[in-house]
Structures are given as C-alpha cells and as structure tokens.
Design a binder for these strands. Sequence first.
DNA 1: TCGTCTTGTCTCACTTAATGAGATGAAGTC
DNA 2: GACTTCATCTCATTAAGTGAGACAAGACGA
Lengths: 265, 265
Amino acid sequence: MSAKDSAPAQGPSTLAHAMQILQITARGGYRGASVDDYLDAMDFSRPTLYRLLKGLKAQGFLRSAPIRGRYMLGYELLVLGAQAGNGAGLRDLARPRLLALAQRLGDSFYLFARDGVNAVCLEVQNGAYPVGSFVRATGGRLPLGVGQASIALLAYLGEAERQEILVNNAERLRDEFSLSIASIEAEIDHVLAHGFARGVEGSQLPEYTGLAVPVLDHSGHPLGAMSCSMLKSRMTDTHRQEVLQGMREEVGEMIDQAHGLLYLD
Amino acid sequence: MSAKDSAPAQGPSTLAHAMQILQITARGGYRGASVDDYLDAMDFSRPTLYRLLKGLKAQGFLRSAPIRGRYMLGYELLVLGAQAGNGAGLRDLARPRLLALAQRLGDSFYLFARDGVNAVCLEVQNGAYPVGSFVRATGGRLPLGVGQASIALLAYLGEAERQEILVNNAERLRDEFSLSIASIEAEIDHVLAHGFARGVEGSQLPEYTGLAVPVLDHSGHPLGAMSCSMLKSRMTDTHRQEVLQGMREEVGEMIDQAHGLLYLD
DNA sequence: TCGTCTTGTCTCACTTAATGAGATGAAGTC
DNA sequence: GACTTCATCTCATTAAGTGAGACAAGACGA
C-alpha cells in the first residue's frame, strides 16, 4: 500500500536525462535554454550533453534557437502534442463545438480530460467576454477538485477511485486553492443529481464562476468534461439555461460521433 | 558537399528508440499502439521494450490506453507541444488575432513557421465558411513552396537559402503537388514587390485559394507567416482588400508586442 | 583584421548501465 | 476454471553510454 514514489528513476536513465532536457528547454519559454542551463541543472559532462542534444535535434524534438548556443523545443513535439490531446478523438470533435459555443454565447469554453490526479486542459476557446481561469492554455493542469470541470470528471469515477484522488489532493486543494473536501463532495452530489457542475467557491478567482458537463462513454465512464467560465455577473438564470443547453447539445453530438469513430473497423 | 544523410543513428540509441516508440504510438492515433506494434517495428526484446515503456510512462510521455496492452501519448507532450509551437511567443500573440479575423471575415486563418525545408502550422482558426486546406491541424507540415504561407516565408529568406530549399523540395513539389519551381519563384517576386502572397495553382485543391503575409522581425527575417484560405468564388477584389488589410493590421500589432517581449530583461 | 571567448566535436579508455533469454506473476477472456 | 496475453523479475553478458581533456569552429569586440 505504501507508495515508494520518491524518485526511483524509472526505466533507462538516458531516457530520463533526455526528458529532463526537454523540460528544462520548456522552462526557458520562447527564449529557449542555454548549454549552461542544462549543465547547471543536471550532472553530466559537456560531451554527454551534446550527444543528447544532437540526438534530440536529429529527431526533431529540439531545434537551435536563433541565438547561437540556445535550444528550443522542436516542432516534432507539436505534432505529438496535437495527437496526445486527441484521446478518443475527442479534441477534434470538440474544437469546432467549443468555437461555436464561444461565438454564440460569448463565454469561454474548455475541454478537459483526466490525467492521473489532475485534470488537463485539452482545448480552450475564448469568447468575447474576458475571463480569468485556472488554466491559461492547452496543456494546463490542475488538481482534480479545482474548477467545475474537475468536479464533473470526479463525479463519474468510482467511489473508491474518487476518494483516493481527493485524499491525495486534499493538501493542495486546501493550501493552494482554499477548497475543502466537503464542499467538493457536496458539488459532486449536485452533479450526480442534476448532471452538471457549478463553480465551487475557493479563495482564487472569486469574481468568476462557471458550469461543466461530463462527456461520458457508453458505459458511463468519463472521457472528459466540457466546461465554461464567466464573470459571476453574467450568470443569470436564463444565461445558465442557455449555456447548459448549448453544452449538452454539443456534448450529445460529440458522443454520437465518438462512438461512430470508436467502433470503426 | 555530399551528404551522408541516410541514417547514421545520431546520438544515444536509447533515445532514438524512445522517440521511435513515441512515433509508433502517434501513428496509432486515438487507438494507441499495442506491444506487438512496437515489437514488429523495432528489434529488441520484450523486457527492453517494457523498460522503455515504463520510463516513458513515468515521465508522462505515454499513458495506458483504456484497452489493456495498448499505449497512447501522454499529456506531458501536450504541455511541451504547446510550448514548442510558441517560438518567439508568436503563437500566443496570434491566437486571438486569428480568431478575430476568422469571426469577422468568415475565412480560415493560419499561422505558419519555418521548420527546415518545411512549413509547419502553428495555429489554425476556422471561420464560418468551409475550406479545404493542405494542413488539417496544428502541427501539420508541408514542403516550403506549397501554399501561400510557404511562399511568404521563402520570399524573405536569403537568396542562397531559398534556392537550397527549392532544389531540395523540387521533386516533391513536382510529384506530389504539381508545382514548378518557376511558378513559385514568380510568386516570390510578387511577394517582394507587393508584400503578400497569393495561392499558386497546382493540381491539388483547385477550388481554393488564399492570401498570406509574412511576419518579419526587426531585421527582416521571417518569424512566420499569417495566411488565410478560402473558396475561389469568395475572392472578390473588395474581399481581398479586406482580408489583406485585416491580416496586415493584426500582424503589425503582433510584431510590436513581440518586440516588447523579446527585449524584456 | 586579429585575438579571444564560447560553442560544438573528437578520441579513447573505462565501467556503468542497458540488454536478452527465459521463467514467473498478474489480468483478462472464453 | 483453463487459456491467452500482458507485464515483471533475475542474472550473466557485454554493448553502450560516459568523462576528461584536447581540439575545431564560429561569433564578437576591439
């Protein structure tokens, strides 16, 4: 039962090094990372570093930045990243729908999926009205429990699994987001009763709220969640109904199409 | 001069194997890849394969598919992919602008960057009118020379570099896209004279056309290109002017903001 | 134009660290 | 409950990655 999840260095170490290089490069943002950044953060010799850099570059996972001696993430990652976000083909299906909702209703719409104890944002489409949100962009992650999409995902996991996740995340939820397990569980009950999640009040982003609906497969397991975020002042009863109905329609059609795809060939 | 670019296996081989695993997984699409897919495509033992899989999974680059024994790309790639597409911060700057253009004008707008001898699509925003395009989504690549965005990029590279690329791509351009170097060079002249590129007629997608403008840094080097694609029937003189002006304005503002960012600290 | 600094590559001996074969345990499937 | 497939383990082998330092190639300022 006790997890030895400290850092047992899984798998071949060359691999771990390579991935670490990618992470360091990513931290550099659009400035990239320099040789010294790598050498400082990791402990192996310059030749070894260059061997790895060369290999990663040859595979298209890194490229040289315009400034000599700096490296940036390669475009191969773009391709893989686009693929990675498309589990079950959901992202492709969701993209135009999120856009349509954002255009029609003016709020910002999101597609989330579960990633271990986190929710990961697969796609965003901002609307005309400005919003604050926990995730800035595709790829953003936040602990399950934070945000309405999280709740929608959690609600349809098994009871045991949900508890495990909540226990795991409890500390972060409390310290970083001022969220209590009790309030999250209350909202989960609401989801199970009414089929949608509302924003749970924490210390963060108090002026914003939102709605989320789950994307369930034929057996009731959550493939993802569609959510939206808006200023509290915009959340009138009629607007809530509009948004909910819009999201439910789009999700319904997505599911139909997804099943079509999944059973192809 | 003679390139020994066959396949000298750059860098550590573990790395190459790992990347190959990711590629194979990507090819599986939303179905993922099975153990046999890997074992068939690569030649090493099952334990070794599992060691790599385990390592990649631990790093978040792979995850288990819902179906046992199949693997999919992990969400860590999403994060890196989002970063990778944001060279010079262009993508973040372009995203809302492409959206605004697509909404206002109804056509589909794209951001491209150079990737070696290819152009890579960093961002797409589809408009209300349907289009056919060479790239389906973010991450799509096509040889420099194909499409108006390519032309806009090529035009602002050095003469020597451009020639090198065109010679390199000549065969593909001819065979896959029915494009002659001469017609491409003619359009490059047009870009240099007028500052924008039009679609060059090839055998592919004959009903569609488009426009593209370069995104140049302060020294005149191309950071990328913004392009749009539309049905030929929509390309009236007035619409062309509208689109061109719209793209030019957005690109101009992008550049200003990008410079602000680049010189920060 | 010429130093000078930093980036990138090479060589070679070393030994760590990845590998293969096969057996064994776990998880579904019929 | 028997069978198949997936996943892990052990251990000897050795291939493969590694470090130290020297060397080459650009970039850059004076």
